[in-house]
Design a protein around this nucleic acid. Structure first.
Lengths: 64, 64
DNA sequence: TTATAATGTAAAGTAAACTTTACATGTCAA
DNA sequence: TTGACATGTAAAGTTTACTTTACATTATAA
C-alpha cells in the first residue's frame, strides 16, 4: 500500500504535527504511515481523507 | 463506523465464507465486521470494495 | 552561535485486527 | 428425521496499529 500523504500534507502547508492534531493521532503515527511502516486504520483513513480533501483513490495506491 | 457489507454481500448471493475466500480472510473476520465487532484493515477495505463493486462511501458510514 | 521547528527513528507498552479451533443454532433439502 | 449449509459467537493466540518517551539530525531564524 503506497500513499500520497506527505505530498498532500505539504501542499496544504501542514507539518506532521499539524496533521496529527487534526486527525487525533500522534505525530509518530503520521510519520510511520508516511514512511510506510504501517497502514492507517479505517477511522484514521476517513479523517485523513477529510483533512486532506481527497478521495480514497487519490490518497492510497493499493498493491496486492 | 457502520457498514453495508451484509446487504451488499447478499445482493451478490455470496455467503460469508464466499466473501471471506474472495478477500483472503477467515469467515469469522467477515462475520465480526458485519456484526460490528471491529473495522476492517485498509488492505481488506480495498478488497471488499473491489469484490462488492462499490465506493468507500457506499460501503461505510463514518461516525465520529 | 544559539535556539527553535520539523522530521526520522527506536523501544516498550497497549489496543485493535485477524487467526484457528470449536460449538450452538436455524433453515432447508433428501 | 437426518444431514448439509449458513450464521453467530467464544477463547486463546499472533500481528499490526497506535501510544508515550526519548534522542538525533537538519534547516533556519534571532
Amino acid at each position: 500500500m503506497k500513499n500520497n500523504i506527505q505530498q498532500l500534507r505539504k501542499a496544504m502547508h501542514l507539518s506532521q504535527e499539524d496533521l496529527a492534531a487534526k486527525t487525533d493521532v500522534s505525530r509518530q503515527t503520521i510519520n510511520s504511515i508516511e514512511t510506510g511502516k504501517f497502514d492507517p486504520s479505517l477511522p484514521l483513513v476517513f479523517k485523513l481523507l477529510k483533512t486532506l480533501d481527497v478521495s480514497l483513490e487519490e490518497l492510497f495506491i493499493f498493491e496486492e
